[in-house]
Nucleic acid binder design. Sequence first.
DNA 1: CCGCTCATGTAACTGGTTACATGATTTA
DNA 2: TAAATCATGTAACCAGTTACATGAGCGG
Lengths: 181, 181
Amino acid sequence: MIEVQAVTELEQCVLGIVWQSGPITAYEIAKPFAQSPSTYWSGSAGAIYPLVKRLEEKGLLQGETAKWNSRQKRTFTITPEGLRELREWLAPPFTPDVGAVSFDPVRTRMSFLGALPQRQRERFVDEAERVIKEHLEELRKIHAAELAKGNVFEALAGRGGIHELEARLKWLAEVRRELVK
Amino acid sequence: MIEVQAVTELEQCVLGIVWQSGPITAYEIAKPFAQSPSTYWSGSAGAIYPLVKRLEEKGLLQGETAKWNSRQKRTFTITPEGLRELREWLAPPFTPDVGAVSFDPVRTRMSFLGALPQRQRERFVDEAERVIKEHLEELRKIHAAELAKGNVFEALAGRGGIHELEARLKWLAEVRRELVK
DNA sequence: CCGCTCATGTAACTGGTTACATGATTTA
DNA sequence: TAAATCATGTAACCAGTTACATGAGCGG
């Protein structure tokens, strides 16, 4: 019986960050999550510090305590097994959910929009458009920055997010036409 | 001090289902989640049964035990407070994350695609396109069914999902062009 | 010297998850 | 009569969350 200790999506993602930016501290790993426009992961210390410890115990990360002025900090590097794990996560075959439609709070609410009176339905669409446009602007700034830094794959990923929000706006425009009809 | 017992997104969603389809059993509430193409919520008994009990305790749902042949089953109806809660969830102002970009496993992986050799990067895009197209086909079928049933808002929501996956395909086509360049 | 950032953790909680258990009803 | 579906729950688990605690280094 093979011991298949599951690696979570966040763990895989951290593996990717360490691959790209290692040696790196847990603090530095957490930062991009905390600052990301996506709210999916908080990037809190309570998530990351135990996580890197776990990955180290699994042999996917290698920790090293370095001195930093008078104090010391712990940096992590990806191991060969970690890189293998990362590549296995990245490369097909994918788990079934990879191609699935994502969770979108606006879409979820849309199903029940009939519970609002007509005027509030239109306000719903207005406000959704507004907040999405705000986020879109932020994504465009980040994307420009990634391009400038030459992070090709980060930039490509960012473009994916932009496409998603643009699609959401296009959809909402359709919804509005349907509502006023 | 006001007792603000938070209602989760899944709870709100269940509230919406009961509003639309009540009186309804916990079993029937769970089914659409379990069958949904989205894997975000499992729709397991372990999620729904305790949840409806919670909502009943909060006074947002009203349970009633009805006889069903020789057995009995418990059906739930939304209360006036439940409807108020539902409308508050639906109507603006939204919580900040509502307009945020969603979690997309393909996009997450894209950031680290540099860890794969060139040929596997192209295979990544191929496979991603393939699985997304599969899901898209399923969404289109469901959308047609919702339209046929006259569920306007369900159909509109479904269209949102279709737009999202179409945007993902458009994005991947761009990525491929970038990769072979 | 004040406040911000860097840095490392722990503690309590929780909203889900999977898996299990049971049994009636319906349908092929 | 066997299999699928309807129906209701519980138990153990767990990967995250928020909040707390601590303290050094640094820029103005």
